[in-house]
Amino acid sequence: MNRRHLLGLAAGFALALSSTPTLAQDKFIVVASTTSTEQSGLFGHILPAFTKKTGIQVRVVAQGTGQALKTGEQGNADVVFVHDPVAEQKFVDAGFGIDRRLVMYNDFVIVGPKSDPARVANTKDVVAAYKKIAAAKAPFASRGDSSGTHAAELRLWKEADIDVKTAGAGWYRETGSGMGPTLNTASGMNAYAFTDRGTWLSFKNRGDLVIAVQGDVRLFNQYGVMLVNPARHAHVKVAEGKAFMDWITSKEGQDAIATYKIEGEQLFFPNYKPGVNS
């Protein structure tokens, strides 16, 4: 190989690098959202319609709710779309976000092995089910990652008056990871797990796991959307961000959410009501 060949090679690389059509896209927003919305495939279903209509590309960064809120707080996203009403309210109160709107809900379920060692199948009462799992010391995989799902799971343990930090020794396992990896862990060790229905329905590696507990009103999971406060971060794309929030709360957006189904089951239930926001 002589110098000329090498130059040719370098030119080839340069050419390969210059062909980056996605980089040229200038109309876009960054939405910090949760793994449950991204991994369930909801965004893949609804976003093309929005982009087609407005020409705005939506870049979804899927994180846990805690991390997504942090991303917004630091100004690394334009819009935050998460599911932890308590944390969201704090976020707005602290001035990190504005114009919070309720968009949709789904629900949580408890999944567990078919053999059901804690005998919780067909229990509607989630708190009672938690007590049985604790009493049986049946393996339970928790996300342990400060996500919205993790926060909801912990609130219910508290309601059941069980302190998993002390009483959970030997059976309560924190995976410290997202919903999917936690379900992989639960599937691997035949443990119970607390998950949102969307992730569960799109989850493929179920092994022996089935839904054990569902239908309790306390398993209700509300999603909210809010704009990162442009007063704190001047670069926030207010017009484009608002356009997205307007669209997802419009009839068209709400219908798009309602029509997303996996195996015939609806995953998310739109529930935006004008005037009901903070």
């Binding site: 793994t35 999917g180 992989n184 799109s202 493929k204 179920r206």
Partner: peptide, 10 residues
């Protein structure tokens, strides 16, 4: 990484 967390191991 994403497909692993979605449980689509194949």
């Amino acid at each position: 990484s994403l497909e692993t967390s979605r449980g689509d191991l194949a």
